[in-house]
Design a protein around this nucleic acid. Structure first.
Length: 557
RNA sequence: UGGGUCGUCGCCAAGUGGUAAGGCACCGGGUUUUGAUCCCGGCAUUCGCAGGUUCGAUCCCUGCCGACCCAGCCA
């Protein structure tokens, strides 16, 4: 990605103009999650946008937990969210903020609203309130409690705060317009009674501010200049602005909305993701197939790849669905450039080199990366017996097949060219071993007789390797839009989304590296040790993503 | 059917009154001790539709069509 050449997106243009016109001296953004679940790819986009905007314009970005509904929230989520933001490569300005830090201020402002006759305590229950609100096409009507006196409202609100009413008995509403075409302006509730313990404030409060009342004021208190959120909040903007104008806030933030990120073949509904976890369709929130940030992290996706993907997909108000191939491209692009190479045989087939001395071994050297010399070279033990992949041998094949065939030659990557002589089979007819010969003096050279090998295959020495488990992942859903149009997403769960391979053989040298290292197992894809199951006794690798495979797509004859 | 928002290539996405960037995907070809990477080439006579203004419109005007969001004391 070249940031210098990329055209500015609409939010960046607004900021650039605001800075140029002097409307603001500096910008401050914020990422404001409610701590009620794990973050997913959609949140990654919001994090990238908010923190990225601050970075590119030399501003600051806050992390604020929008914790106005204690019933749905938990400290567990605030911790995981902080970890996810950091992993993505961002650091918030100063301390973490909580909307609950402002409960006292918000409460005081609510009293001011009552005093200026702009808010009232309404005794309508939820059902009645719905009836009075009207519908999309019909105006609502005023609550019978709308004209209570300021004194009475002050007294009632104090009783609400003191816990003298049951949940749902009444609520504080702001006096706007029950006939407004924008439903959000029909006397929205700004404080409701919830006798629940809050993860940050404990039992101090039994009334909690609503999102609409708290969000803009929180932005204003923190000095947020550009409050970026998703499209569904567009209609809340007039309300947001009304509060900024009618409450004595210390600054004037502005809200801008962009289209949330949607990726095909996946779901991001928190409820549905939770269902996958609760019903054991996946191995927890961080299952490598999950679109959660923790899942992508365990899978081996890199923060940079995710950031690049966010940038690639742009910032607009158009509601679209991005193709997963873009995400896959971003991951391959980063890993191809930065992953050290290694060899791992997934489906081992023994090859005995009959003309190679039984007691002889030698050491081959291999580049750590074919295009980079800043990667250390590897030492690969070589001997009379090596493992190759079952897919890389056929007794006979047409010209398109560039691997080992009886009577034909192939190069063992970084080692000799060999020629196959015979396939050894068991009683059932399965090939269990291949007899082949090493062609003299072909390490680093073409065969002297001029008969070049048809291709190059990877291998691991039979006498020196580490046995491991390899987990291959495919997309979790077989349907492009698993939950579109009310479809049951459980019906399109891909039964083959996880394939576990045992007895794989990997070159031993890689275990001297950081266990977080992502490798390219040449000709197979990119892999990383699984943070949950891998151990020294039994290494387990996750395939981050396969290599681009044009061969696999063509007619192989 | 009230209000809001959106409609440029299969998918993202620039763009502007002067004759459609880029990326992904896809298709060719070259290099290659990874069927990877890399390189080169192809891929919208057309910008939701229909009129209008104009020498000229994807960009301005009018009308229409389609999609999405809103009737929580969720965020």
């Amino acid at each position: 990605m070249n940031e210098n050449e990329r055209p500015l997106n609409f939010v960046e243009k607004i900021i650039k103009e605001d800075l140029a016109s002097g409307k603001v001296d500096a910008i401050r953004t914020r990422f404001p999650p409610e701590p009620n679940g794990y973050l997913h790819i959609g949140h990654a986009k919001s994090i990238w946008l908010n923190f990225g905007l601050a970075q590119t314009f030399g501003g600051k970005c806050n992390l604020r937990f929008d914790d106005t509904n204690p019933e749905k929230e938990d400290e567990e989520y605030v911790e995981s969210i902080k970890a996810d933001v950091k992993w993505l490569g961002y650091q918030w300005d100063g301390d973490v903020h909580f909307t609950s830090d402002y409960f006292d201020q918000l409460h005081a402002w609510a009293i001011e609203l009552i005093k200026s006759d702009k808010a009232y305590v309404c005794d309508l229950n939820a059902e009645q309130m719905r009836e009075y609100r009207g519908t999309l096409t019909e105006a609502g009507k005023n609550s019978p409690y709308r004209e209570r006196s300021v004194e009475e409202n002050i007294e009632l609100f104090e009783k609400m705060r003191a816990g003298e009413f049951d949940e749902g008995a009444c609520a504080l509403r702001v006096k706007l317009d029950m006939a407004a075409p924008n439903m959000h302006l029909r006397d929205p509730v700004i404080y409701r009674i919830k006798k629940a313990s809050h993860h940050q404030t404990g039992d101090k409060w039994c009334i909690y501010p609503s999102y609409d009342y708290a969000h803009g004021q929180g932005d204003a208190i923190e000095g947020v200049s550009h409050s970026v959120c998703t499209l569904e909040f567009e209609e809340h903007r007039p309300l947001y602005n009304w509060f900024i104008k009618n409450v004595p806030v210390p600054s004037t933030p502005h809200q801008y909305e962009f289209s949330r990120l949607n990726v095909n073949y996946t779901i991001t509904s928190k409820r549905k993701l939770k269902q996958l976890v609760d019903e054991d369709h996946v191995d927890g929130w961080n299952d490598p197939r999950m679109p959660t940030i923790s899942g992508m992290r365990r899978r081996g996706f890199t923060p940079k790849a995710i950031r690049d993907f966010c940038e690639m997909t742009g910032v607009t108000k158009v509601k679209g669905v991005v193709d997963v191939s873009m995400l896959e491209f971003a991951i391959r692009e980063d890993l191809n450039a930065n992953a050290p190479r290694a060899m791992c045989v997934l489906h081992p087939l023994k090859v005995v080199l009959t003309n190679y001395p039984e007691d002889k071994t030698e050491t081959m050297t291999a580049a750590g990366h074919p295009q980079r010399d800043d990667f250390a070279e590897r030492s690969l033990p070589f001997g009379r017996e090596v493992w190759i992949d079952q897919d890389d041998f056929r007794e006979e094949a047409n010209k398109k097949y560039k691997r080992l065939v009886i009577g034909k030659r192939v190069r063992l990557r970084n080692a000799y060219v060999i020629e196959a002589d015979e396939a050894i089979k068991d009683e059932a007819g399965n090939i269990i071993e291949v007899r082949a010969r090493v062609i003299e003096n072909t390490v680093g050279n073409d065969p002297e007789d001029g008969v070049k090998p048809k291709g190059v295959i990877h291998w691991v020495a039979a006498h020196d390797n580490v046995e491991c488990e390899v987990r291959l992942y495919d997309r979790l859903f077989t349907d492009v839009a698993p939950d579109a149009g009310g479809k049951d997403f459980l019906e399109s769960i891909n039964p083959d989304s996880l394939e576990i391979l045992n007895g794989c053989k990997v070159e031993a040298g890689i275990f001297a590296n950081d266990p977080d290292t992502r490798y390219q197992f040449e000709r197979e894809g990119y892999f990383i040790e699984d943070s949950k199951y891998s151990s020294a006794e039994k290494p387990v690798f996750n395939r981050v993503i396969s290599l681009r495979d044009t061969w696999g797509k063509m007619d192989q004859g």
